[in-house]
Each structure stands twice: as C-alpha cells, then as structure tokens.
C-alpha cells in the first residue's frame, strides 16, 4: 500500500488528531479569554454527571454512616445486654437479702412500737411441711428463751416456742394441728380458741352459734392464754358455718409462715393488756 493511500485510509486518526488539536487550541484560548465560555460549557456539559456523582457519593457516605451507626448500636446493645444480665444476676442474688432486710426493717419498727421487751431472731429452718414440723429460730436458752413464749412477725402472730435448745428453738406455728391460741373477733368481741387445720389456715373453736360472725372479720389475740397480749393480729375470718351448738369459723392467717426470715419473740407471760402499737403486728380489736 502506498504511503499516500495509507495516510488517507487512516482518516480516523486524522479525526482524532483534529479533535486533539482543536481541543488544545480552544483550551489555550480559554486561558487568555475566559469570556469564550469554554470552561462554562465544559462545566455545563459535565454538570449532570457531577451532580449524579455527588448524589452517589452522598448516598455512599450516608450508607457507610448508617452501617457505622448500626455497628455502634449493635455494640452498645450487646454491652447493655451484658450489663442487664449482670444486674439481673445481682438482683437474683440480692433479692432474698433485700427482702430479709426489708422484713427486718419492719420488724425493727414493730419492736420499737411494742411496749414489751422482745428479742429478734432469724428463722434458720422451716419444717412446716413435715408432720409435726414447725419453724426453727437461731436463739435459744442462752438468749433467755423458754417454751411458750409468743412469736410474732410484722404481718401477724406466728406461733409460740415449743422447745428451746441452747442456741436455737423450735416454734409451733399457729396452723399446726396441736397449736391452740386464745383469740377474739374484732366486731362481735366473741372469744374462742384458735386451732391449726393446715398450711396457713386455722379455725376458731368454742364460738357460740348465737354470735354474729361475718367473713372478712379480723381476728386478734385475746390475751387469755398468757402467751400473747391482747390485740395482736392473727388473721381474717374466711368462712363461717354453724356446727351443732357452736360456729365453725375458719381463719386465714395473716402472717406468711412459709416466707418468714426474721421474727420477734415476746417475753414470757406478758400482761394481758398492753398499749397497742401502730404497726401491722398489733391491731385494733
């Protein structure tokens, strides 16, 4: 192929070179005369692409920020979960101690309001579910305890000391079948003997059928048994029905016998009448 023909055949190269030359020329002219508007024209031409790329960059940045925020949030959530788990574990661990502390605070209030010399004791065992079972407290004869001393809690009467060892004593709760306590009804003023019938329950004996006893009526100690002074809350009448010449009065005990942790031990043979405390352990008969 002749050089002339080869030169002509490469017309595309001529076009490219022409564009290259023309572009460079216009570019050089635009430096001297900015009024030519070449730069403006180039900016106008590339404007849509610049806007598109700016949007794309903004979207990428926003997405990366979202991913970063999400990752940070996930880390924070994981940390918070760990802390919540720790707090829950502490709550489980501290719960019984806190409940015992709250009960001790209430007991301390009751002790301060009781006009009797009482002794505080911790419940170290609860064998009420066993036959002839009861409560075991951590005070005994060394602390001056002896059988037939009354045991109360902020919520109500618990029972009496059945047997006292050197450093611990067993308590016969009110709901034991062999437990008897002198009680009286708040409204009718009728007195009787409370005998245990089962867990958390007891019934009052020797109430005449002539007495008007209603369910929901409060039951207090009568003081006649010389174990408890008059007016300590025992429970509430849950059911009343006639039986022969007397009423069968079922009582729901107010003291939570299965959840006790601390109790107060009353002195031996307390006076029948004492000024009533304002706490829950002492009612208004």
């Amino acid at each position: 192929m002749a050089p002339h023909a080869k030169w002509r055949s490469a017309s595309w190269q001529a076009w490219i070179l022409s564009l290259l030359w023309l572009g460079h020329g216009l570019w050089a002219m635009s430096g001297r005369w900015p009024g030519l508007g070449l730069v403006k024209a180039l900016n106008y031409i590339s404007g849509p692409m610049l806007k598109l790329s700016a949007k794309w960059e903004a979207r990428r940045e926003a997405r990366s920020q979202q991913i970063y925020d999400l990752g940070t949030a996930e880390k924070e959530i994981a940390q918070l979960k760990a802390r919540v788990g720790l707090f829950e574990m502490q709550e489980v661990r501290e719960g019984p101690r806190r409940a015992e502390a709250e009960e001790a605070i209430r007991l301390l209030g009751l002790k301060q309001q009781m006009p009797l010399e009482t002794k505080a004791a911790r419940v170290i065992a609860n064998t009420r579910s066993a036959p002839f079972g009861g409560l075991v407290i951590d005070q005994g004869t060394e602390a001056g305890l002896q059988p037939d001393q009354g045991v109360i809690a902020p919520a109500g009467v618990v029972g009496r000391i059945w047997n006292a060892g050197q450093r611990q004593a067993s308590v016969l709760p009110l709901d034991a079948y062999n437990a008897s306590t002198g009680v009286m009804l708040a409204r009718s003023r009728a007195t009787g003997v409370l005998q245990g019938t089962g867990p958390g329950k007891a019934e009052i004996r020797y109430i005449s059928s002539q007495e008007g006893v209603q369910a929901g009526e409060a039951v207090y100690t009568s003081g006649l048994d010389r174990i408890f002074p008059r007016g300590l809350l025992v429970g509430y009448v849950s059911h009343v029905r006639p039986r022969d010449a007397e009423l069968k009065v079922e009582v729901a005990l107010s003291a939570p016998l299965d959840r006790l942790s601390v109790v107060l031990v009353l002195p031996s043979k307390p006076p029948i009448e004492v000024s009533p405390p304002a706490g829950s352990g002492k009612g208004q008969p």
Binding site: L17, L20, W21, H24, G25, W27, A28, S30, G31, R32
Partner: peptide, 10 residues
C-alpha cells in the same frame, strides 16, 4: 493555565 505548549507541540 497550562495547555498552550501542548497545542504548539502538536
């Protein structure tokens, strides 16, 4: 404003 030399060279 570079570009003039390239244009002259071309």
């Amino acid at each position: 404003h570079p570009g003039g030399a390239a244009w002259a060279d071309l």
